[in-house]
Design a protein around this nucleic acid. Structure first.
Length: 428
DNA sequence: TCTGGGGTCCTAGGACCC
DNA sequence: TCTGGGGTCCTAGGACCC
């Protein structure tokens, strides 16, 4: 019997709920959140789901539905969602020490095993505390492994009888629930693996759980990751709570453009801007990068079957986190990649070969060393931007007009991170 | 005309070494 | 002309996640 218990806390309809906290008029209304560039639907309130708004639907294809059902559209407001996420994670840390933020709207926690009655009570306490402290509704799934906690959470959320909290530890209904769980609803089993398993006659989570009797077969079919999933379905935890603060191994910044871009100057501004963002993330985790990748894309929908992705790698002689140096390298890549006759829709910057800044060996003869004075300069830029708002200080090469910028026509205020955009309360 | 933006891990296969 | 076996490291690509 394992000594630890895992719980997954997941915010319900996170982006839509964040919008509602600061605009109470949105309560009870169907809300849909758009991706960057207002391109497609990435989040929906329950009312919007019921109205038939599909996840991932391109906005231009469902305009009639939006009008007919009076759906409120919002552009993604990551400054707001990111800050609300931070508040949720802090609330959880008040309740229990081992917290792993898993995504912007989810966290795993691990705690010692309690008797079943106390587990139920703890689950409810988490739910009410997060609601009180942040205004956000969450669901809580408790189980002996992370994979089962995911299933518990999903069931708690979709099945009103559980009132948002479900504990699967020592729960006699577990196998019945697994029999009703489709393969694609298991964490780690996507469409590809699910199809392969289906052909083998395995059609639900319970049947997959039973494959524990032939581990070698599972390993061959699904690799070690699949084997871990099977063990976890059996209540044998194989996935630990991960330590926060581990440095990222790759940092990517990419955006689609508001409209097709043909001008090289626009592209070089966009690349400078994306490099600035990526390098700031790099410095925030006290790292340097040794490889820069630049990718340009044309419209993959209209260029069906023909090439639409053009990429190049730039090995940095010396690992660096200096925005200015990275921009120069990025522009050298652009010189090689750019073709006059193409209409570009998207650019991406990726930094890899990431090392801790303390581990960098200085090259006595190179002009490209990431020196202490460069580091200090970048530090000052980051400090100013943290204090006075992102982009307060920026490199001129990122451009002024930014004709390539994202479309965000339905953006709400940065209620929690910008002094001049705080929510206003009207007192009658 | 209009279709997001990030990440992680694993495996296979090639290059290279002894 | 024939031509072993084992190891490491790196990269590309696949699969999955939100």
């Amino acid at each position: 019997m394992s000594k630890s218990v895992y719980a997954l806390i997941d915010c319900n309809n996170f982006y839509a709920s964040c919008e509602r906290v600061f605009d109470p008029q949105l309560r009870g209304k169907p809300i849909a959140i758009l991706s960057n560039n207002d391109g497609c639907i990435i989040a929906r309130s329950d009312e919007a789901k019921r109205a038939g708004v599909e996840m991932g639907a391109p906005e231009f294809k469902i305009r009639d539905l939006i009008k007919e059902k009076d759906i409120v559209l919002k552009s993604s407001n990551y400054a707001l969602y990111g800050d609300m996420s931070r508040r949720v994670m802090e609330t959880l840390r008040h309740l229990t020490p081992k917290v792993e933020p898993y995504s912007i709207d989810e966290a795993f926690i691990e705690f010692p095993k309690l008797i079943a009655k106390d587990l139920d009570r703890f689950g409810k306490e988490i739910k009410t505390t997060v609601k009180q402290w942040t205004g956000l509704p969450v669901s809580v799934g408790i189980a002996p492994s992370k994979t089962l906690a995911k299933i518990a959470n999903e069931t708690a959320k979709s099945n009103p009888q559980h009132k948002g909290v479900l504990n699967l530890v020592d729960n006699s209904q577990l196998d019945n629930l697994l029999k009703e769980t489709k393969l694609t609803d298991i964490w780690g089993i996507g469409a590809g693996l699910s199809q392969r398993l289906f052909k083998e006659g395995i059609q639900n989570a319970f049947q997959l759980k039973q494959q524990v009797s032939r581990k070698e077969w599972v390993r061959n079919k699904l690799s070690v990751k699949g084997l871990r999933t099977v063990m976890e379905l059996n209540g044998e935890p194989c996935l630990d709570i991960e330590h926060v603060g581990d440095a990222r191994k790759g940092i990517m910044t990419s955006r689609s453009f508001g409209k097709a871009v043909t001008d090289k100057k626009d592209l070089s501004e966009a690349i400078a801007q994306f490099i600035s963002i990526a390098a700031e993330k790099l410095r925030a985790q006290h790292s340097v990068a040794s490889l820069l990748h630049i990718t340009l894309r044309t419209n993959k929908y209209s260029n069906y079957k023909s090439k639409y992705k053009y990429g190049i790698e730039f090995p940095l002689q010396m690992p660096t986190a200096n925005t200015s140096h990275l921009i120069k390298c990025g522009h050298a890549c652009l010189d090689k990649l750019y073709q006059r006759d193409l209409r570009y829709k998207k650019a991406a910057v990726m930094l890899t070969g990431i090392l801790p800044e303390s581990e960098v060996q200085q090259d006595l003869f190179s002009k490209n060393n990431y020196t202490a004075s460069e580091h200090n300069l970048m530090q000052k830029v980051d400090d100013i931007n943290t204090k006075y708002g992102s982009g307060t200080t920026h490199f001129a090469s990122t451009g002024i007009e930014k004709s390539w910028q994202m479309k965000q026509e339905h953006l709400s205020a940065k209620y929690t991170t910008q002094w001049d955009e705080l929510a206003e309360i009207q007192v009658d």
